[in-house]
Amino acid sequence: MTDVIWRKPKHSQKRKRSERLKFIAAGVMILAAVLCLLISGTLQGARYFITVSEVLEGASYLGRTVRISGAVDGESIEYDSEKAIIRFEIVNIPSKYDDLATALREALLDSTAQRLRIVVEDAAIPDLLQHEAQAILTGALGADGVFAATELLLKCPSRFEESTAPEGLSRIPEHQ
């Protein structure tokens, strides 16, 4: 029987080190690439998420892409179905509130709250665009005072959230 003895080649240590260097270099390169991607994307695409009042009062927001949120006034909704243009008005809602449904209702009842005209071009009218919906819009305020939105998201909390105290339940039933 022959014994086979495997001896470590002399240069193996050196090779190991160079392999490790390769790994470290690859790791650093990948990390840098991912960071670059994240940072450049954020710098390019970041938008303030602000209220109607903030966009109207801050001149610096004019023409800048921002994201805003407001309460939809149902009576103001117009849809030009030939040209696919939606126009409506939103009312400022405060940036901090406890219950969205209540905040939306109160905003629409407040005649002093600031209002903003919205136009969305080439859009299908969303099913949820209705009175007391919260609209979250991405776009820019034009010099004409109209906010041209490129993206429109809607939430209708009053319709689907569990109501706190429905009216009518405490009516005394007739047979009692």
Binding site: G41, T42, Q44, G45, A46, R47, Y48, F49, R67, E151
Partner: peptide, 16 residues
């Protein structure tokens, strides 16, 4: 103030 990014930026991140 809340800063957000839109769908376009997510696409910019994920495509590569």
């Amino acid at each position: 103030k809340e800063v957000t990014i839109g769908a376009d930026t997510f696409e910019f991140y994920v495509v590569p």
